[in-house]
């Protein structure tokens, strides 16, 4: 009997989200297959994208082998962002870490000015994250959204505690929302349901929390894989959004990544590769050499 390879065809299609405008834009999502299942029926029109991370203040706890590639620009987020562009990033990920009440508690207005400067200075799309403190983000992110009015950025994290106030500001000023929930698919769906009541579902990106290798990565992997499967296979409208894997910060927090450069690059690289296989559509990295390593790996060079 002749062997016929089984080919799956799924009905769910991940929504396509555009970040940025015109030439300064990119698309993520849009696939109707599982990650790298190119043998099945369907396609992924938008291959995975990579962002490099920029902080709005000089990093405090980065090892030298991580600061080295950016050593002349670390005090200037605008220059730092331009450097990321030169290094081949598809997007810049600006983290407004200084606004954290536990860091500098810097003002929302200051953060908004900075965000706009960075957005205008680069020729690639911008992703902006607040500090993650849900109360402070509820002040900072609306100001950032207003300052960058109409630029169609991806802004987050939008969380259970602040989705109404942040979501409405993003909507009013024409941005996409990155919805963050803590490693639980039921909570993830709930946030998407609630946000979708007033915010267009095709402008939501899922941040399911990306833990580092050795620090819970397997949980992140399983969850991301499940989100993708439930979206693509069972066509659950509330999980059919592209996924952002915000893993650089998690990896470079680890003792292992801080110890030596090789170890750091591998730590970030292996976490990135794993989450890519789980279904991430855009990955946020810190080290430009990891970016190079992963791109080479995917392109099988």
């Amino acid at each position: 009997m002749e062997y016929k390879a089984p080919v799956e065809a799924y009905t769910g299609v991940v929504r396509e989200v555009t970040i940025g405008k015109g030439k300064k834009s990119l698309k993520i999502g849009g696939e109707n297959i599982l990650p790298f299942h190119f043998f099945d029926q369907g396609s992924n029109p938008n291959p995975v994208k990579f962002a490099l991370e920029v902080l709005d203040m000089e990093p405090q706890d980065w090892p030298e082998h991580l600061t080295q590639p950016f050593k002349d620009v670390l005090t200037d987020p605008v220059k730092w962002a331009k450097k990321c562009e030169e290094l081949g990033a598809d997007a810049v990920f600006l983290r407004l870490v200084s606004t954290d009440p536990a860091v500098k508690d810097s003002s929302a207005d200051g953060a908004a000015v900075m965000a706009k400067k960075v957005a205008e200075a680069i020729n690639i799309p911008l992703i902006i994250y607040g500090s993650g403190d849900d109360k402070k983000d509820a002040e900072v992110l609306p100001k950032v959204a207003e300052a960058c009015d109409g630029m169609n950025l991806l802004i987050g994290p939008v969380q259970k505690e602040n989705y109404e106030i942040v979501g409405r500001a993003l909507l009013e000023h024409g941005h996409n929302a990155s919805a963050l929930s803590p490693l639980d698919i039921n909570l993830l769906k709930e946030l998407n349901v609630k946000l979708s009541k007033f915010f267009p579902s095709d402008r939501i990106v899922i941040d399911s929390l990306s833990s580092a290798l050795g620090y819970g990565m397997e949980y992140s992997f399983s969850l991301m894989e499940r989100v993708k499967q439930i979206g693509v296979i069972t066509k659950d409208s509330m999980t059919m959004m592209p996924i952002i894997a915000n893993l650089g910060a998690e990896c470079w927090k680890t003792k292992q990544a801080k110890e030596t450069k090789e170890q750091g690059l591998l730590w970030e690289g292996l976490t990135a590769l794993s989450l890519l296989l789980a279904g991430a559509n855009i990955l946020v990295l810190r080290h430009p050499e990891t970016l190079k390593l992963i791109k080479e790996t995917i392109e099988a060079r």
Binding site: V193, D236, M238
Partner: peptide, 12 residues
Amino acid sequence: GETLYSDAWLES
């Protein structure tokens, strides 16, 4: 188990 559970299951 046909649709994914969330606390908002009646709303979606």
